Simulated scan of single mutants.
Amino acid sequence: MGLSIAAAALAFVGSIVGLSVDGIYDNLTSAFLYQALAQDIINAVVVAPTIVLCAILALRRSYRAGLLCLGAVAFTVYSYVIYTFSIPFGPIFLLWVGVLGLSLFALIGGLASINRQSSTGRFTHSRAAVVAAWTLLVVAGLFGLLWLSEDLPALLNGVRPQSVVDLALPTNPVHILDYAFFLPAAVLTSVGLLRRRAFAYPIAAAFLVFLLLTCMPILITPFVQLTLHEPASWGVMIPIGIVAAILVGVLSWFLATLHFERP
């Protein structure tokens, strides 16, 4: 939890610098700039405060807060892999590396500290677990199909995917992370939850938090574009908004089924 708080503090500072200091994102394309600014806003306003608050509550033995913190830390690892490997070298590069390292080791420590023997007994509503599993599986599958719908035609036609062109990157880091890590882990967790495997219950809750946070930068990107006097991509609001609303409902229900708060 100490590593989580340190990562959140550094991420908050880095996001404030990214939003307020000219030149940090000068080498980004317009499409990438909107995403980076939206990400910084969510990091500073939502993710960093959530990690700090939930880490403090978890240190006071709140199991729910620990799961929320785990999901937010996983989102931070995911985000800062993109920051460190995709954004050109600049004045806060080492800060980004620090956030990535701290959050990665915090995530490893959080996963290692899960008491699998007591996990199943904490979640008392089998229907909520089934709904959570299918929600995770379906949302992950939809993202996977969306990425494949762009990447497969590009491969068959021998061209670069449009998102890669828009970002001016060698490849799309989001697609790589999802194909290699997120999608397999989501499927494994969903199947484990459906089979009532102890490890899957807390990880599924953290995954739902991760997915919800993933929706947030997408939802505010049109407002960033509007602020910069650029055409806003309002078309993403309805589908991503629906997904986010479903995730809020399922996550709230799943966590509400916890039998007790203190071990």
Rank of each mutant, 00 (worst) to 15 (best):
L213R: 00
P263I: 13
V174C: 08
S62F: 07
L155R: 13
M1T: 02
L142S: 11
Q35S: 12
R61Y: 15
V13H: 00
Q39H: 10
L19D: 01
I42K: 02
V97I: 10
L177W: 00
L255S: 04
I5W: 02
A244E: 12
N172V: 12
T257Y: 14
A204T: 11
A72Q: 07
F32Y: 13
G249L: 14
N27T: 07
C54L: 13
L68R: 03
I82V: 12
L146K: 07
V243E: 13
P263N: 08
V73Q: 07
L177E: 09
L155D: 11
A129P: 03
E230Q: 15
S62A: 09
V138F: 15
A128E: 03
T76G: 05
L226G: 10
A7M: 10
A132H: 10
P202H: 09
I240R: 01
S118T: 15
F223Q: 04
I203L: 09
P91T: 13
I242E: 06
G110Y: 04
G121D: 15
I87C: 04
L169W: 08
A198C: 14
L67A: 06
G90V: 06
T84P: 01
L194G: 02
V73T: 13
G101D: 06
H229Y: 15
V17A: 07
L19Q: 03
V243H: 05
A185T: 07
N157A: 15
R160E: 14
G14H: 08
